[in-house]
Structure formats: structure tokens, C-alpha cells
Design a protein around this nucleic acid. Structure first.
Lengths: 189, 189, 189, 189
DNA sequence: TATGAATGAGTGTTCATTCAT
DNA sequence: CATGAATGAACACTCATTCAT
């Protein structure tokens, strides 16, 4: 990937993360990237394609860190805690705008490429939680439910922390997550 | 509120719910409302004000139904189940676009009026879950945590059902919610 | 029709006739019309619609003059001559660019509204020549052929006068047209 | 001429004939030719120069076939008929867009090189019809007029067949042409 | 209260061409 | 002879808002 394309992509990542896809115009994007408009379109066929590429990059980074965490030689429950702690720290430090995947999908019409990227990312994310859950619950069906639960708690925490501009959603989600991990398999009555 | 204003508001509600705030233009809105552009601006000082008013209406409706549910003479756990069942049915029937409050806040710059409306709605929503939780856990601090957990699971279910265009998030969230309700108060070690 | 719309249409007529549809941009059009871009689009939904409306106006003017000529109490052959004389004078005076209908249809993709306008105009034009021919040849089938011949000679004259930037095509076409009019019905051997 | 240049020219011929000069962009042209943009500009100084070269090729091909026809040992009137029959067949078989020379001149500003190419082609074409006419009418001035008439009828047929998307213009033009050929020299009173 | 007309600033995208290598 | 990268200017069009009546 050419250095120019990388620069555009980096600018896009910054701006999109700061304000969201639809509140960032091509004009600002190229200006901040320091390239001509036509140069931009030589590297990205459309704003939408750029968006997809940006989200693919975000997905890669996220998945890499999840994958690393998964392999760590620590108790699985600590991995769960670590995820929420990471989120907490991220929220405290940056002017977080919520989940870029969910947010972007929301402002995209119909079934374009971006939706697929988002779905792929979310599938991968869910898989991660399933994998963690399997290290906690050997029983596959119990692990499936636990994984989904953690995934959804995490998602909810992200959304509502953003809405409330507060950290309690992360703390509560973490507590609930740990509770679900500790829980005896009483879900099967 | 004048009948004209109500008609505009109704049109806005339909369109915003169908496609989201930023994908609905003023032109389409006034055309579908059957009013002149200037008439629109006589009733709403800006698109943003209209948006706020729309969300306030949505909040009122949502809170009313939550309030009704809360007073129902049924076991509290059933109220929890009922909430998720309602969501499930809604998703199955309509072309749902996710939580209109979260979605709209996402595409709004900084701290405008809409963000406050969203925060108010979310606070109210959280309160509802706390109230339900109190009917399950007499202990206030346990109820607080349970309420948050249910709130976040619900939020996550909405978001991820929308992303996945599937119903499993609702089902898993419901299962997790019920599990948390049934759980012995082992969260306090 | 509002005065503004008329002004835009007049500007468009001038520019389109001077340089052709595709060599005139919206920006120049609105600037020369003295209106804002959005004002233009309030009156014409697209450049293409404006084009169609322009051609419809041209068609109306042309058909009116043809209709007048047809009713004139002079020998039909003189009407034929008059048509070619009028073309000659027009070419000599203005910086003619050929037939605006044919030219515009050429640069339009597929079957859009403009093509229909052009076809309608051309049908009307052909009808005029048929009517003239009927005043020369009472026999309907002979009149049909004569009318078509005159129509095609006129069309060819317009095209080739434009290409050659000369008047001989008009003169030759007129001579040929008159010859065909004078001809005994020897076409049926 | 290098093979690369020939390939570009061939691609251009195809695309220009299919959609017209102004609806074919350089980007598509070089992509379909399989050459780099800079390579294109090494062979053709501008899109306009390419256009001129394309039309020169078209002119050569057309003139060659006309020249062949002229030498054929058949009655001259049959040559006239043959020309119109050829046009008819071509129209019926291909998605004809009208005369590429006239069409292209129409979308070109002022007096550039292309206009000269078109004028040259049209002069040659007219000469052909004069030559045919001379084989029909020994009298030079009568032949001149007949040739022009046939030329203009042919031109009109091409234009109007394109506009009407029908074949009647060709049939009528042929009939008129043959009538003019058969006509006694009554045009000289 | 209601309106039709007008607007400046923006949207994303494509154009033919040139540069450095 | 060939190329990938870059460009300024233009493209058609839409935005939310305001003005005069």
C-alpha cells in the first residue's frame, strides 16, 4: 500500500473515529490528508470504499488484540475482566464515540459492502467471546450462552457508556459478566 | 399543538424511524407532510429541534409502556421476560433500525439538545430496570447491579440484533437476563 | 411559468444553441442566469429536464411557424421554396450549429425523456412536409414519398451546411426539392 | 505505427462508435486498451488528436469502399441503390449512432483539427456522389446538382433513421434518389 | 398562520492532463 | 517506450435555512 494511500487512510481513521462517517466530508478529508481530490479517488473508488477499508483495518487491530489475549496463560475469567478494564481505560482516555462498526452500519443504506464488513467483525468478536467462555465452561451449549451474554454485555456497555458519557455501564457490565462466569450451571433447571 | 405541527411530527417519526435522522432531508419531510417549507420552520426552529421533539415523543411512549408493565400484578421475572419478548416480536415484524436514541445521538455533533433528550430517556430506561430489579432483589445494591445488567443486556441485544439482522441476540440476552435474575446473591462474596 | 424560470430557460436556450447541451455546464448556466444553484434546481429537477423543456419550446416555435406557412394562400411549391429560403437566411445570419434536436439526441444516452421530445418533434416535422406534399400531389402515396423526400433533403441540408460551413447544401437541397415537386409521377413506371 | 498505438486506436474506434466522443473518457479508454495513462499520452498528444486520427481512419475505410463501388462495371443507378441498401443493412444489423463525422463535429468547440477532418471527409463523400452522378448525367452542371441531391438525401437518411430509430428514412431516401436519377433533365427549364 | 421563491455552502465524483522515474 | 502517482478544475446535484408577502 502506497504511502499516500496510507496517509489518507490514517486521516480517515482519525476523522471517522472523531466524528463518524457521515459528519466527515471528502473535502475535509483530502485537505487534512494533503492530497488533491483526484488523488484520493485514484486510491479509493468512493467514500464508501474508503469507509470499508477503514473498518477492515479497525477490525484487524481489534481481532489481533483479542487473539493475543485469548492465548495469554491466565485464568479465563481474568481475560473477561481484562477486556472490560481495557474498555474502561480507553473510554477514560479518549473522546470515544461508541462502536465504530455499529455506528457506521447505522448510517449506511441497505446492504452495501460496509454492512458485510461490520457483520464479519461482529461475528469474529462473538467468536472470541465464545472461545473465552469455552475456557470457563467446558459444556459447549453453556459456553455458547455465556459467550453470547458476555458479548452482549460488552456491546451494551459500549453503547450506554457513550450515551451516558459515564463509566458506570462498563463497571456494571464487568460485574455482571463476572457474575455470569462464576454462576453455577443453574441455567439448566 | 396545532394539527399541522402534529402532522409534520408524525411524518418525521415515520421517516426518521425508517431511515434515520441524517438520511431524511427537510425537502422530503415537508413534501410528505404536505406543508410548505416556511410553514415547517414556523413550527420547528430547525431540523435539530424537530429531532429533539420526535425523540421526546418516542421517549414518552416508551416510558408509558414501561410504567404500565411495572405495575402489572405478575412476578417481576416475567416482566423481564416480557420486555425481551416484546423486543423479539418487534424485530420480527418491523424493519427495525436499532435504538433511535442511540442512533441519533451518534450522528449529532457535540452536546446539543438531542444528546440531553437521549440521556434523559436512557436514565429513565435505566430507572425502569432498577425498579424491576427491586421487585426481584430486595437488597438495594444488588438490585442496582441487576438492573444495570438487564439494561445493558437489553441495549446490547438491540444493537447486535440490528447488526446481525438476526434474533439470536435477543434470545441470548433474555436467557442471560433470566439467569441473572435467578442467580443466588453470590455476587457479594 | 415564473419569471425566474423563464430567465433560466432563456439563458439555457441561448447557451445550448450556441454550443450544445454537453458543452454547457450548470455553473455557467446559473451564473449567466443570475440565480443561485439551488434556485435552478427548484425550477428544474435536473439538467436533463431543463434540456427537455428547452427542446419542447424550440419545437413549439418551429411548429407554429410551419403551421402558419401551411395555411398561407400561396402555391404549395412556393411553401417548399420558402422553407429552404428561411433556412438559408437563418444560416447566413446566425452562427448556426445544426439541428438542435438531432444534435442533442446524439449526446444523450439510451431512451430518456429528451429522445422522446426529439422523436415527437421529428414526427411533427415530417407531418408538415406530408401536408405540403399533399397540396402538390393529390395521390396520397405519391404525397407520402414526396413529403419524406423533402423532409430528408431539408435534414441533410441542415446537417451538411453545418459541416461545410457553407450554403451550397441549402441551395442544392432546394433545387432538388423543387425538381421533385415538378416531376411528373414517373416514379411509378 | 506501433502495435500499442494501434491497439489504443482500435479501442477508441470501438468506444467512440458505440457511445460517441464525449461520452467516452480517457480513463475507460486506457483501461480497455490495457495501457498506462502516460503511455496513451506518449502516442496521442490529447484526446482530441486521438479523435482526429480515429476519424481519419474511418474516412479512409469509407472512401476505399466508395472508390471500389465507383469502379464496379454496373449501371450507375445501381451504384446509387447499392449505397442505400448498404446503409439499410448496416442500420438493421448494428446499433448505429448516426454519422460519426457529423456527430463528433457537433460536440467540438470552434475550429479545431477535427472539424477539418470532418470537412475533408464530407468533401470526399460529396465528390463520390458527383462521380456517380456524372455516370448518370453527362451534363456537368446537371451532374453536380444530382450528386449534391443524392449526397444530401443520404445524409438526411442517416440522421433521421437515427432519430426515428426506424428504417423508413432510408427507404424513402432511396426512392427519392432513384426518382431523381430517372428524371428527365427537366430541371433546366 | 401559511406560503412560494431564493440562497450560500456544501455533497461526492470525474475530467483530461502532467510529472518524476 | 513505458509507467504509477498526482493534480486543478470542473461536474451535476443537495443541504438546511431565510426572505418577502
Amino acid at each position: 500500500m502506497s504511502v499516500t494511500k496510507q496517509r489518507i487512510l490514517a486521516t480517515a481513521a482519525t476523522l471517522f473515529n472523531e466524528r463518524g462517517y457521515e459528519l466527515v466530508g471528502i473535502n475535509e478529508l483530502i485537505e487534512k490528508s494533503g492530497v488533491a481530490k483526484a488523488t484520493f479517488y485514484q486510491h479509493f473508488r468512493s467514500k464508501e470504499k474508503l469507509c470499508a477499508e477503514w473498518l477492515r483495518q479497525e477490525a484487524l487491530a481489534s481481532q489481533a488484540s483479542s487473539s493475543d489475549l485469548l492465548k495469554l496463560p491466565i485464568p479465563a475469567v481474568e481475560k473477561v475482566a481484562h477486556k472490560f478494564d481495557g474498555l474502561r481505560q480507553f473510554l477514560a482516555e479518549s473522546d470515544f464515540r461508541g462502536c465504530c462498526f455499529s455506528n457506521t452500519a447505522t448510517v449506511m443504506i441497505q446492504d452495501n459492502e460496509v454492512h458485510q464488513v461490520v457483520r464479519d467483525y461482529k461475528s469474529g468478536s462473538r467468536l472470541f467471546w465464545h472461545a473465552v467462555a469455552l475456557q470457563i465452561r467446558p459444556d459447549p451449549s453453556a459456553a455458547l450462552l455465556l459467550g453470547d451474554s458476555l458479548f452482549l454485555l460488552f456491546s451494551g456497555a459500549v453503547t450506554e457508556a457513550q450515551n451516558a458519557k459515564a463509566l458506570w455501564p462498563v463497571d456494571s457490565a464487568k460485574a455482571a459478566a463476572l457474575a455470569l462466569c462464576r454462576e453455577t450451571v443453574s441455567t439448566l433447571p
